[in-house]
């Protein structure tokens, strides 16, 4: 096999990786539109979208490394950063939603946090009254 064929095969593979990433992003946005409550939506949005974007960034990283001879630390740093911050943002958003009183979907099967949060708030109220 001559180098040119290998190059074009590699190019197509990277293109397909990027396309898979874009497809995962689109499906997770469908989830963002379709699912019934905030918590379920943030499952779809913050994590599957993160996975899709990781695919795309990895494809870009490989592309510039192989074809442009440019080992990009910035892109690598971006990948690590998205990997770390995406889920943390989802957690903060979910916690804020629960504490500000956004209710769960009516089809939810159990809620262990409700009672505990109520008890915790009551204890704090009593502690302040003393």
């Amino acid at each position: 096999m001559n180098p040119e064929t290998i190059g074009s095969i590699l190019e197509s593979v990277i293109g397909i990786v990027v396309l898979i990433g874009a497809l995962i992003s689109v499906i997770s946005v469908i989830g963002l539109i379709r699912l019934p409550d905030v918590y379920l939506r943030s499952h779809a949005a913050t994590k599957s979208a993160t996975l899709g974007v990781l695919f795309i960034l990895n494809g870009a990283f490989l592309y510039f490394w192989i074809f442009e001879d440019h080992f990009s630390i910035k892109l690598l740093l971006g990948i690590v950063f998205v990997f770390l911050t995406g889920p943390v943002g989802g957690h903060l958003n979910g916690r804020a939603a629960y504490r500000s009183g956004v209710s769960l979907w009516k089809g939810s099967v159990r809620d262990d946090l409700k009672e505990d949060l109520k008890r915790e708030r009551q204890e704090r109220q009593e502690g302040r009254g003393l």
Partner: peptide
């Protein structure tokens, strides 16, 4: 949708 969400 065939999901059973909840908090555990």
């Amino acid at each position: 949708l065939a999901i059973r969400p909840g908090i555990v």
